[in-house]
Each structure stands twice: as structure tokens, then as C-alpha cells.
Simulated assay, not measured.
Amino acid sequence: MTLSRSFSVAALAALLLASPVLAQEAAGAFPPGNPPGVDDWRQQYEQTLRDEYGWLSVAGLTFLPDGTYVIGSAPGSDIPLPTGHAPAKVGTVVVAGGVATLRFEPGVEALLNGQPAPAEVVLKKAERGAPGQPATPPDKVRVGKVEFHLHESGPRLAMRVRDPESPIRIGFQGPKWFPVSEGARVVATLRPFEEARTVDVRNILGDPEPYQAPGQLEFPWDGKKVRVLAFTSTKGRLQVIFRDATMGRETYGTRYVYAEPTGDGRYVIDFNRAYNPPCAYNPYTTCPTPPKENILKVAIRAGEKIYDGPTTHAAR
């Protein structure tokens, strides 16, 4: 969701010579005033949430142990689709050994990844990429405006449904933010492990998700040294999944932020861009939660606040 840049050491050195702003950032000092680009980033973040098939459109999640499932909008369907937005019976899904085969009802018009769907198809799951590389997306089936695809929550297979006309999306009131603060940008030092560790991060349903951790990031906050477990992400960034002392009153129980590399082994963390996971808005999502190392005693009053819109009760 965030915008980022990664540089080679040589390219960074050239940019530092040409840009006093970058030079100050690498040295751990920032110019006065609001950090650049935060307002634009926040607008783009909100637009991503509001996208037609973004996180707010998720309208269902059904787990699929081995068996046969009817998918459609008719009452009693095993995989329910939004009433009035999809045929009463789209077809059946047969799951065996983690493989899901979809068989359409005669006459149902559907698209598979934007192309006319065959009468029967073995649905592909998302494929996790190598550390630092994006995942390959799953097959997406669309009937009318309703879209569905396979989703994995830890070892469990599920069907995730998206509906652009979901009340969660239509009724979204927008994110709430702490004021932008220059002091919320910090320079962090990576304390690497001897070897990168695979960490089982639990999602909101308690299912484990494997993350690669190259080490811990150390940074100053309110006169204290804070350390957090950092996870490998794309574009040379590191991801931090954290909870702080504002949780429950001012912020949601989990927030995410990226650490951008400076090219010299250090990272800039801009907590003005700390944001909520989709679970803050949508009860049908399965978001990673902070490992114990990242449950902080300090209060980070920066970035996104808790959502107080009409769907909060469901998301919590």
C-alpha cells in the first residue's frame, strides 16, 4: 500500500551529494515542517481502501475442509454470495487434499481472470514469493460484479468473496489520523541475526503465517531505545507489525509501517505512515498480528487512529 524507493549504495551517494534533504535524513536529522509526501501518501492509502475490489469490498470468508460445497446467493448456500448480486446457484466447489475444483451450473456466465470461464476449472491458490518478492495472485472468478477466489489462512483453505456494493465499502467514513509530525520520523539501525529467522506470525484468527526476519530494528522514541522485529518485504524495505501503549483507546490493536532503506544499513521509519490492517474495518479479513517482541510499552501517537465508523463493531 505504501510508496517506496530503494537505491544502490552508489546511487544513494550521488543523490546525497545532490540533495541536502536526503543527506539530512541519512544523518538522522530532518528539515523543519511536515515530512514531505505524507498527505499525498495518506490520500493514496485511502483510495486503495476504497478501490472497487479493495479491502472494503471483502464480503465473505468460508473455510473449506475436504468436501463438496454449493456456491451461490440462495439461502443455505455453503459458500454464500451477496443476495441479489449473484445467481442463486453459481455451481459447486469440490475440495480434496487442498485442491479446489469449481463446476459451474449450466447457463451461468462467469469470467476467470478476465476471460470467459470454462465449465469446470481447478482454481489456483496464491503462490508465496521468495523472501522480498511479491506473491503470485490466485485465480479470480467474477459473476456479475461479485468476485471470489481461494484464500489461505495459515494451513486452512477458504473462499474469499468480494462485492463492490458491500455495505462496509459503501458506508466507509474514511481513516482518522494523528496530526503529521516531524518527530514521528526516526532513523533505525538494523541489528541483524546471524541468519535470517522464519517466524510464525499469528493472524487474527490464530493461524500461523511464516515471515522472514533478518533482524531487529533499533530506534529512539521518547528518550528510550526501542527494538522491534523486522520482516523482509518488497523493494528492499522492512515491514514492522506492532502494537503500542495507545492500543484500544486511540489506536487499533495492530498497525503496520515500513522501514525504508537509506543504503548504509540504516532505515527511515515514518510513523506518520503507520496504518491499520484491513481487520480494523472488515470482519472477513485475516490480518497478521504483532509478535510478542513488537508489543511496545511506549505510546506512538502518530499515523492512523482507531476507526470509529459504522462497521467498527463487526471488525472488532
Rank of each mutant, 00 (worst) to 15 (best):
M1K: 05
T2S: 12
T2Q: 13
L3V: 11
L3S: 14
S4K: 04
S6G: 12
S6I: 04
S8F: 04
A13V: 03
A13H: 05
L15R: 11
A18K: 07
S19G: 07
S19T: 09
P20K: 01
L22N: 01
A23H: 09
G28E: 07
P31A: 14
P35E: 10
Q44N: 07
E46R: 12
T48L: 13
R50Y: 07
E52C: 05
T62H: 09
T62V: 13
G67R: 11
G67Y: 11
T68V: 15
V70W: 09
G72P: 10
A74M: 04
S77A: 15
S77C: 13
L81K: 10
H85Q: 15
H85W: 01
A86L: 11
A88G: 13
V95M: 06
A100G: 09
E105N: 09
G107H: 08
A110M: 10
P116M: 12
A119R: 12
A119I: 00
A126M: 13
E127L: 14
R128T: 14
G132M: 03
A135M: 10
D139A: 12
G144N: 01
K145R: 11
K145D: 15
V146W: 12
E147A: 14
H149Q: 15
H149K: 14
H149R: 15
H149V: 00
L150G: 09
H151P: 00
P155D: 11
P155E: 08
A158F: 10
V161Y: 05
R162T: 08
P164L: 11
S166D: 14
P167R: 06
I170A: 14
I170E: 14
V180N: 11
V180P: 02
E182I: 06
E182M: 06
E182F: 00
G183W: 03
A184D: 03
A188Q: 04
A188V: 05
T189N: 03
P192M: 03
P192F: 07
A196G: 02
R197G: 07
V201P: 06
G215Y: 04
G215H: 06
Q216N: 12
E218S: 15
E218I: 02
E218Y: 00
E218T: 09
W221M: 04
G223K: 05
K225Y: 00
V226H: 01
R227P: 01
V228Q: 09
A230T: 01
S233N: 11
T234E: 11
T234M: 14
K235H: 13
G236C: 01
G236K: 07
R237I: 00
R237Y: 00
T246W: 07
Y252M: 03
G253N: 12
G253Q: 04
V257D: 02
V257K: 02
Y258T: 02
A259C: 03
P261I: 02
D264H: 02
D264S: 08
Y267W: 05
I269G: 00
I269D: 02
A274R: 00
Y275F: 15
Y275M: 00
T285A: 10
C287P: 02
P290N: 02
P291D: 01
K292M: 01
L296I: 08
K297T: 15
V298T: 07
A299H: 06
I300K: 06
P310Y: 10
A315H: 05
R316S: 11
